[in-house]
Design a binder for these strands. Structure first.
Length: 334
DNA sequence: AACGCGTGGCT
DNA sequence: TAGCCAAGCGT
């Protein structure tokens, strides 16, 4: 089954990002919200489920957060760490984290600076602060249990649309569409016939993800994990291994001759010389020291005083660094 | 909506 | 080699 006119127009949303939104709005205003499933899309879905889920059963990696003993907290910790950080770098930090803080309340009882320190070099250390904040909220407002509802999860710091969906689906086995960068790429190719999805998630993509979600709860949960895994291992961004793909024969992109991506390239972010690099160096010094660090030590990490001061100010206003008397700094105790 | 936010491996 | 890329979020 190749992409229909409906799905291909929806999935070509880099050009027409409003198609899906208008359709959704029209349905929403019509009354009770029942997912509008295009019959062709439904047929596409049925033809994809078995091969993808079977492939997953045979090829899924044995990752610690996929084991039963991980629990919802383990899933949640892994999802925070995996936000923009590769699996291989997450693995050792995840193990140490859960050993030290096996429940949300254990983390909540510690200063936020300890979370930042334990985060190590995973990058984007504000995630550590948010995970600590989420743990406190769970301890205080949810009786120490990771909430099961998508809306409750979404209210936690650092939990966005994707992470909430991942916890709902992976930790609690509930039926919820999960759209991460891997799934978006798989759908863009298999359904949309495009090499890459649009830069930002569109309403059209959400609609397709919902339409493709299996009815059965347990299958839906496996499907979510399976499509992610397929994107991570086979349908990769740079060099997809279509010969190993369980749905290559049905893939709209393959059937179209694997055309190269049209349209604007993704903005590539620089790093060298940016405030981010300076922040990283400052924080590395602070992580390494259990005691407060004098300003003079921090001054060593970057030659340019204006940028250095701006980076330090930023860390303080983000709550990643606590200024003390006498020009000394440390990771935050509160 | 576009941007800032770390870090390191890969091609 | 210099981008490109990695299970996003918040503003």
């Amino acid at each position: 089954m190749t992409a229909t006119t409906e799905t291909s127009s929806a999935a070509s949303s880099p050009r027409n990002p409003r198609d899906g939104a208008e359709a959704d709005a029209a349905v929403a205003s019509a009354g009770p919200v029942v997912d509008p499933v295009d019959p062709d899309l439904a047929e596409t879905a049925r033809s994809l489920h078995a091969p993808v889920v079977d492939w997953f059963a045979a090829h899924a990696r044995d990752l610690p957060w996929r084991r039963r003993e991980a629990g919802a907290w383990g899933v949640m910790v892994s999802e925070f760490m995996l936000q923009q950080t590769p699996v291989n770098r997450v693995l050792p930090v995840y193990e140490q984290w859960l050993e030290r803080w096996p429940r949300p309340a254990d983390l909540a009882a510690e200063p936020p600076g300890e979370a930042v320190r334990a985060w190590g070099r995973l990058g984007y250390p504000r995630r550590a602060l948010r995970l600590h904040g989420a743990a406190k909220a769970i301890a205080e407002r949810h009786g120490g249990e990771v909430p099961e509802e998508h809306a409750q999860l979404l209210a936690l710091p650092g939990v966005g649309e994707y992470t909430a969906a991942a916890v709902v689906s992976f930790a609690y086995g509930k039926r919820h569409a999960v759209l991460d960068t891997n799934v978006r790429r798989v759908f863009a190719r298999a359904v949309g016939g495009q090499q890459y999805p649009p830069n930002a998630t569109t309403a059209a993509e959400r609609r397709i993800a919902r339409a493709l979600l299996p009815e059965d709860e347990a299958t839906a949960s496996r499907w979510a994990a399976a499509t992610m895994e397929l994107g991570a291992l086979v349908c990769t961004a740079r060099s997809p291994e279509c010969a190993r793909c369980p749905i290559a024969e049905q893939c709209a992109w393959q059937l179209a001759g694997a055309p190269a991506h049209e349209g604007p390239a993704r903005r590539t972010q620089s790093y060298a010389g940016t405030d981010r690099q300076v922040r990283g160096r400052l924080l590395a010094v602070l992580r390494a020291s259990k005691d407060p660090v004098p300003q003079s030590d921090l001054d060593q990490v970057w030659h340019e005083p204006v940028q250095r001061a701006r980076a330090l100010d930023g860390l303080v206003s983000d709550g990643l660094v606590e200024p003390l008397d006498g020009g000394r700094y440390r990771l935050p105790l509160t």
